[in-house]
């Protein structure tokens, strides 16, 4: 098993109007390549803060964060942006698609922030991921013309387009009905089977059961780290990692 992410003694403190709030307290965590992690816990326990730190949307107050053997704990805004662009894919609860861009343009967005690919390569990659999430037929539509489930599939496609090292999903089914939620979760299963590393925040125990590893948080600390042994063979990835 290869460690993709290593968090060592990570803490995060927020200062709001002279009140200090410790959102994360001494977190130690290893995420291996190919793992499908479900992160759960009560509201306010620090799930989203941990996800933000993992996604380099924020920097830790203390501790070390290694991503693919590089220390990323104290990078500048732009350095973090470059890593997000190349190594991380986000799926948000509220989809966060840009309303004035078409499906194709939304998916293409992360690639436009990289200077490596040509126009043809970008177009081909976008078409490929859209096909993967079965949204090719709606690529010229605007987000407002899609259902919630379709919007979230587009968001997943956008998260995949840069071949990220890890996909971070913050309650991806929170805004969806059960049918659309199931479709998105199946998509995640499929990605996991294909070898993708996923970390998903969820409140839903049923969704969490689909992951290969379940983490639970309480009051800013990881209180449970469990390998999901009930995973059906068809949902298991090629190799299961335990950190």
């Amino acid at each position: 098993m290869t460690a993709l992410i290593t968090l060592t003694n990570i803490s995060k403190t927020f200062l709001t109007e002279e009140i200090e709030t410790r959102a994360l307290n001494d977190i130690n965590l290893v995420i291996n390549k190919g793992e499908y992690i479900a992160l759960s816990g009560q509201s306010g326990c620090g799930k989203s803060t941990l996800l933000s730190l993992l996604g380099l949307l924020d920097a830790p107050s203390n501790g070390y964060y290694h991503l693919a053997d590089s220390d990323v704990s104290s990078l500048t805004r732009d350095q973090r942006a470059n890593i997000r662009c190349e190594k991380i894919g986000f799926v948000f609860q509220s989809f966060n698609l840009i309303s004035d861009l078409t499906v194709f343009e939304n998916v293409m967005l992360p690639l436009t922030y990289q200077s490596k690919k040509s126009k043809t390569q970008i177009e081909s990659k976008v078409n490929e991921v859209l096909a993967k999430v079965e949204m090719s037929h709606r690529k010229n539509h605007f987000p407002s013309q899609l259902s919630g489930g379709q919007q979230q599939r587009v968001a997943v496609a956008r998260a995949l387009v840069n071949d990220p090292s890890i996909i971070l999903a913050d309650e991806p089914t929170g805004n969806l009905d059960s049918q659309n939620a199931e479709a998105v979760l199946q998509l995640f299963d499929k990605l996991h089977q294909g070898g993708a590393t996923i970390c998903m925040v969820t409140h839903d125990p049923a969704s969490a059961k689909r992951a290969s590893r379940c983490l639970e948080m309480f009051d800013g600390q990881l209180i449970k780290d469990q390998i999901n042994t009930n995973l059906t063979d068809s949902k298991k990835p090629a190799e299961l990692a335990v950190g």
């Binding site: 949307l57 942006a81 470059n82 840009i98 922030y113």
Partner: peptide
């Protein structure tokens, strides 16, 4: 969103 997706 753009920043989250990696725009510097």
């Amino acid at each position: 969103i753009r920043a989250a997706l990696g725009a510097n």
